[in-house]
Design a protein around this nucleic acid. Structure first.
Lengths: 242, 242
DNA sequence: ACGGAGATTTTGATTAATCAAAATACTGAA
DNA sequence: TTCAGTATTTTGATTAATCAAAATCTCCGT
């Protein structure tokens, strides 16, 4: 029905819209660079998809998903994120490599297969990076997340999301224990050094990371009493490969 | 590297070659109808793939895989059949529906993911329909199989393969218990009625099926002593959906 | 209000895969 | 051997997706 090309346009536009937060239309140029194609191509394709009712497009102003387009985009996103979690949980791939795999598989898994995966995983709410997985109706859970680089010394937080598909960064985060579910205490923040110091509940070693890296880590605030507890509700666990 | 189109050409040609048995080249028209495309398209594509060293092509005579092409075709076949088995064993899909799914997924699963699936399934030798799965080196197990329609009354056989991707037929076979692993005794063969009568070890009901249907079922002969035993060695079991 | 700078759109070409239909080549029967 | 019938190949067109580069628009700063 829809080519993987159009699915990619829909998915990228959805992600860009979510990032923007304000309901402003996305310039075709942004979409083009997100898809790594030339601006002219994006314009042409967008006009076609607007014709088909998937997007609203206003020349020189930008593009926005219609209700229909957004629904389809959420389907693609659901496929992508469920597949990512499946690859980690069931096939034991490393979370740093599943994004690439899912980029391809998201266009190949049928509704039927996806439903089986969804059941097998227990209808999870979040993918291995902590991104919310749209349910079959296209709804996604939303959470109040803070950026790790903005946390104050003394605060206790739990890692909820790591925003970055770069495998090298994900391997780094994994090595440092900065994966969804990890419990941290902020020890210090040094604006001059552009760094933040924190300790992991399950490690004696304090950890120092730069602000730029910390910015990619999203957390939820906990009551400051350090107490051992299970994973946050709804949080899809990250199981390290066997 | 290779488009799913070229992968399909390779796979279909391999299957046609295997069916032919003699090493004769496959006419482009046969390939075309197997791929459900027009003959002209097949000719054009085949010439291109011959250019790339994947096939040997002689005008008006036919086409044959080169060693390189055959290796690639075996890879595709391996992906297809491993995925089929995975869908049945792990995700619990019905064997009548996995062929269609695998037609798409075979072009999307990476070597890495495939290796995980292979390990998870225990490096199986046969797919849910009893077709052999090439191993990572491209080798496939071969067996001496007889056609059920040619078995003699009194013989005891075990179903090894059901040759037909038609979902309706597969559902029929499943309903009648004619799935790989099933143990049967041939009761009678009636040329006039064009039918064969047999009994399943695990069922009291004798079963009568037409020759055309029986032809699609491949079996191995057993010592005629009816004895309870496990699945044949190397035979991938068919687990019904939960 | 004007003029650039930078973004956006348009245009013309390209590639892969396909079809339809015309042209051509085999093959077997008389 | 010849020719008719069938299979194959060739040719010209089409569609989806893309790029490069030329044309055009917008908007900001003076």
């Amino acid at each position: 029905m829809h080519s993987s090309t159009t699915e990619n346009y829909l998915k990228h536009l959805l992600l860009l819209q979510q990032r923007q937060e304000d309901g402003a239309p996305v310039p075709t140029g942004r979409l083009a660079s997100s898809l790594e194609i030339t601006p002219g191509t994006a314009t042409v394709m967008v006009k076609g998809m607007a014709e088909s009712g998937l997007m609203d497009y206003e020349s020189h102003s930008g593009v926005r998903l219609t209700a229909v387009g957004e629904r389809l985009a959420l389907d693609v996103l659901r496929r992508h994120r469920l597949v990512e979690l499946f690859l980690v949980q069931v096939l034991g791939l490393d979370w740093s490599e599943v994004h690439e795999e899912a980029e391809v598989l998201e266009h190949a898994v049928s509704e039927k297969v996806l439903e089986r995966i969804d059941i097998l995983l227990g209808r999870p709410g979040f993918d291995p990076h902590g991104d919310p997985i749209p349910n079959a109706a296209g709804e996604l859970a939303s959470r109040q997340l803070a950026r790790l680089d903005e946390c104050e010394p003394g605060q206790r937080v739990q890692v909820s999301q790591v925003e970055n598909q770069d495998p090298a960064f994900l391997r780094f985060a994994d090595a440092k224990g900065l994966t969804p579910g990890a419990l941290l205490t902020i020890l210090a923040r040094d604006a001059m050094a552009d760094a933040i110091t924190l300790s992991r509940d399950d490690s004696a070693e304090p950890l120092v990371i730069g602000t730029a890296a910390a910015r990619k880590v999203r957390v939820v605030h906990l009551e400051s009493t350090p107490q051992r507890k299970g994973r946050a509700a709804g949080q899809a666990g990250r199981s390290k490969r066997a």
